[in-house]
């Protein structure tokens, strides 16, 4: 099914088109969310929201960009909103914890799933890279993640982020400089 057939099918409310959309883009969308959220459950949860929003608003999609780009855009926005909301909720929770209104604060602040992986170095390095990426400014983080983990070309990242191509180049350039600095601090490289 081509993009245009898919768009017209979705606009007409064809359930097969909906099924095809979800099946064909499920992994890409989950992985975009995972790249920003670093948590499988959150990523799948937000990915479901992404498809719900896409199916609800399919009739509004003008076809100016690829369907995948449109889905990436929703996924990035939803993931960033989730991160922002979690920060607010975490702040409220910590206030609640001070007054004894909430359970003990979970030590797993990054929201990463606990693993039984005994490879300490791998875990340490994984944490190092994730925290270095997470500490980047939001737009640099999105651009870097889409480029390096989703392997999206700069032009598509520009469409997803709704910025110009030079802006994407600049964001990724600055992200790399920042990451270099952060990773160099690790064990005094």
């Amino acid at each position: 099914m081509t993009d245009s057939e898919l768009i017209s099918g979705l606009a007409a409310g064809d359930p097969e088109a909906g099924r095809f959309l979800v099946k064909s883009h499920q992994l890409q969308v989950i992985n975009v969310c995972l790249g920003l959220l670093h948590n499988h459950e959150d990523a799948e949860d937000i990915a479901q929201d992404v498809f719900v929003e896409a199916l609800k608003n399919a009739h509004r999609f003008r076809g100016d960009s690829k369907i995948s780009t449109w889905l990436y855009r929703i996924a990035v926005n939803r993931s960033l909103n989730h991160i922002r909301n979690n920060r607010k909720k975490r702040f409220l929770y910590e206030i609640g914890a001070v007054f004894g209104l909430a359970d003990d604060v979970d030590n797993n602040k990054s929201g990463e799933p606990y693993t039984e992986d005994n490879k300490l170095e791998s875990n340490e390095l994984r944490h190092l890279l994730k925290s270095a990426i997470d500490s980047l400014p939001e737009n640099q983080r999105v651009a870097f993640t889409l480029n390096k983990f989703e392997e999206l070309p700069y032009a598509e990242i520009a469409e997803v982020m709704q910025v110009s191509l030079p802006a994407v180049e600049s964001l990724i350039h600055r992200a790399k400089i920042n990451l270099q600095k952060k990773l160099k601090n690790y064990k005094n490289l």
Partner: peptide, 13 residues
């Protein structure tokens, strides 16, 4: 960086 990248990339669904 290569090790960290591979570990993170391996977590992809």
């Amino acid at each position: 960086y290569s090790t960290a990248y591979q570990v993170v990339a391996a977590e992809r669904v």
